[in-house]
């Protein structure tokens, strides 16, 4: 053991950069995938905190929902929901394409997903502009804007990721063997979609 550490010290003092030894892989799960899943747990908890606020304002306080004199555009938001859900399918298409070596499918899939996401965000902003109330009015409006806005912010982050993936796809990155870079942002995008379904149901439908 003593001898071993002396030979280590010799390597340490030399400035040559040999790489680290490949780490042992003690789990079948990919680190990137696991990291993303754990991050999504954190994200779910962020939404959980905002839903707690929603619960206290709507249920515990017993405030009428939606606030008196306002109405929520359930149909428009419903269409928007459909748009977002369809983008989950297009990104899945992109992922299967690259697995099968179909570069066109990858690019087209990513581009469509990106554009669908943009239209969701555009419609959402348009809804804010025309909805006829402001978050400063009362607690119900506050939590309406906060929940949808929090989700909107996540769509925005997701779109940034998608944009990077799309750029890289067009620049010829990713192969059937190496496509983690499409997979992992894809999981995030699915999460954003599922979260929207929950937000839509609780805020607009119920």
């Amino acid at each position: 053991m003593e001898a071993a550490s002396i030979s280590h010290a010799a390597v340490h003092d030399g400035h040559d950069h040999h790489g680290p030894p490949a780490a042992n892989r003690s789990s079948r799960v990919e680190p990137e995938l696991l990291g993303m899943l754990l991050f999504i747990i954190s994200e779910i908890m962020v939404f959980g905190a905002f839903f707690t606020a929603y619960f206290f304002i709507r249920i515990a306080q017993g405030n009428p929902w939606p606030a008196p004199g306002t109405s929520l555009p359930v149909q428009v938001a419903g269409v928007n929901t459909a748009i977002l859900i369809s983008s989950s399918f297009t990104i899945h298409w992109a992922q299967t394409s690259i697995k099968n070596g179909n570069r066109f499918g990858l690019k087209a899939g990513m581009l469509t997903t990106f554009l669908l996401g943009c239209s969701f965000l555009f419609i959402q902003i348009n809804e804010y502009a025309n909805i006829g109330f402001a978050p400063q009015d009362a607690a119900q409006q506050t939590i309406f804007y906060s929940l949808t806005g929090l989700h909107g912010a996540h769509v925005f982050i997701g779109l940034l990721l998608l944009l990077f993936v799309t750029i890289r796809a067009f620049r010829g990155h990713y192969t059937p063997e190496e496509h983690r870079g499409v997979e992992v942002p894809g999981i995030y995008w699915h999460f954003v979609d599922i979260m929207w379904i929950i937000v839509y149901t609780t805020v607009y439908v119920l």
């Binding site: 707690t52 606020a53 304002i57 306080q61 405030n63 009015d137 119900q140 409006q141």
Partner: peptide
């Protein structure tokens, strides 16, 4: 910063919610 009403009791906000969160 923006005048939201999370904790504004006069506008339906819930003060105890802060403590729970």
């Amino acid at each position: 910063a923006l005048g939201f009403n999370f904790f504004n009791a006069a506008h339906g906000g819930d003060v105890l919610m802060y403590q729970h969160v």
